[in-house]
């Protein structure tokens, strides 16, 4: 277990609104750590539409998702945010001294005075396989990630997908599994060319079976898989014997553990008061697409505004002894000192 990181604020989510929250908090001397399940900053903007132009950011007539994230990173650099990528905040607890203990699924722990949830549509988690009845097998014989390779030793394994995850695991598990069948709907793969070549070599050697078609159903009982029903390109129906299945159908945003933090969610959104964007738990704020209030517009610019108001309230909590003096960035001594030091 790692040491607990003591900080003023933890921002959950490194999308545009989470990034701008670093700026607004920094302006009022609140230091922040930022956690995101993705491996880089930018959230949806970078994950879903890095090359797509955005036209409604004030002062930027046209900017791509990636461009916006890059600009925000440059803008918050003076405040030296600490990022913790590839992990998801799994637990949030209020401590007896009115601070918050946050734990990530990677074991990182934070002790923070305020928590800012800027989680957008949620964490990008593996998309459920579009196969009727798959729920009954999930976690028992159908897995969306490989925790321990040994679990697949000597198993008849079906892997579905045409991207890097599907092909990497095909290559990795073929030597230890009893059999590996890779199912993909077309004979075109999105994975890196080198990986595709290695997969095809294993198919040629007879180590891996490649089935071009789509899985249509599962056969088994009590969550234990016996076979995967699949339809080939020519419409013929097949049954492929399997004890385990790894479907890779990309990522989709899901709210995840936030739902369990006692924030009185309504339709998967976190209600906030519009004076400070504080949730029903004092000290926990929610900004951007994840929050709900009358008249809410899911725009990046709304999230930026919410970040500014949130920061004022967060600063009062972090520095209760201080008198808040409103500052403009053009004349802010905080910002100028940080810029000079950067």
């Amino acid at each position: 277990m790692t040491d607990i990181i003591r900080t003023d604020a933890v921002i959950v989510g490194a999308g545009p609104v989470g990034l701008f929250a670093v700026f607004q908090l920094g302006m009022v001397d609140v230091e922040a750590h930022v956690v995101d399940i993705l491996d880089r900053p930018g959230g949806q903007c970078v994950e879903l539409y890095p090359e797509k132009p955005i036209y409604d950011i004030p002062g930027l007539p046209e900017v791509t998702g990636q461009g916006l994230a890059d600009n925000l990173l440059a803008q918050i650099k003076p405040f030296a945010p600490r990022f913790h990528f590839n992990q998801m905040v799994s637990a949030l607890e209020r401590t007896s001294d009115d601070r918050f203990l946050l734990t990530t699924d990677a074991g990182t722990r934070f002790d923070a005075k305020v928590v800012v949830i800027a989680a957008g549509g949620g964490s990008f988690l593996p998309r459920r396989a579009p196969i009727p009845g798959v729920e009954a097998y999930e976690g028992r014989s159908v897995f969306y990630a490989v925790r321990a390779k040994d679990a697949f030793r000597a198993k008849h394994l079906v892997i579905i997908g045409g991207g890097d995850s599907a092909l990497d695991w095909t290559l990795n598990l073929a030597p230890i599994a009893e059999s590996v069948t890779l199912i993909h709907r077309r004979d075109v793969f999105r994975a890196a060319p080198d990986t595709v070549n290695k997969m095809r070599a294993l198919v040629d050697k007879g180590v891996v079976d490649l089935f071009i078609g789509q899985a249509t159903g599962l056969i088994g009982e009590n969550g234990m898989l016996k076979a995967v029903k699949a339809k080939a390109e020519d419409g013929s129906l097949h049954e492929i014997a399997a004890d385990a299945m790894l479907p890779f159908f990309g990522l989709a945003a899901q709210l995840g553990p936030i739902a369990d933090w006692g924030l009185n969610l309504s339709e998967n959104l976190i209600p906030v008061d519009v004076k400070s964007y504080q949730t029903t738990t004092p000290g926990v704020f929610a900004i951007g697409d994840v929050n709900a209030y009358p008249g809410k517009l899911k725009l990046i610019l709304s999230g930026f505004h919410e970040a500014a108001l949130m920061a004022q309230a967060a600063a009062r909590r972090v520095h209760p002894e201080r008198r808040m003096v409103f500052q403009h960035s053009t004349s802010s001594s905080t910002l100028q000192k940080k810029l000079a030091g950067a």
Partner: peptide
């Protein structure tokens, strides 16, 4: 993207 869809 259609790779992720049902019954393509």
């Amino acid at each position: 993207m259609l790779d992720f869809a049902f019954d393509v």
